[in-house]
Amino acid sequence: MTTDTNKQAAPPSSMRLVLTLAIAGLISGIAIIGIYESTLPTITANKARELREAVFKVLPGVTRMQALVNRNGELVAVEAPDKDEPVIYGGYDETREFVGYAMPAAGPGFQDTIAILYGYKPDEKLVVGMEVLESRETPGLGDKIYKDAVWVAGFNALSVEPEIVAVKKGTKRSPNEIDAITGATISSKAVVRIINEAHTAWSSNLPPPGSEPTIQETETANTEAGQ
């Protein structure tokens, strides 16, 4: 056994112990920086691509997008939003015509925060699409908020006036009602509440329909946005 030599020898000096740990820490630090630096571009590109795909999904017909933030009560286009600054995305079609906003929103679900992105057309006051970005809802039950196609399609034309209401399955009567998922009532109500809250928070900050910021970017679809 190789540890025998250690046992018989005098205990190593404190200096040696400190040095061993320092060298181990140094090498480990270098390795971690190396892997962080080499994977960072892929990770940011993945996140940007996911966001673009989600924006295009919740706003049908959109081929260009730009990040918008609220500065001094006015909605302005920015290249890179500040960290922690609430940001929404403006979607534009081929002819650079404004289509709608893609609004990120988050709130508590059944187990953990649910983060969603929904498409909103201000001129018709309609939600036109919803995509769950992050959720830890119960597999098999709460995860239907993104696996149940009928439920997701329910957000394709949903009025936000006066507010969205989740009703028992099969009892949808008016344009602002959506059928909740059987067996996932809490999760489906959470999604509806998140959208309602985000809508209330943003509605006063959105410019009147027709005077949305025009698109800044000159290049087509594949420019990086929202980073």
Partner: peptide, 13 residues
């Protein structure tokens, strides 16, 4: 690796 700090070294690795 000195015996006295082996666990810390293992954890770092």
């Amino acid at each position: 690796i000195p015996k006295q700090v082996r666990i810390s070294c293992f954890i770092i690795i």
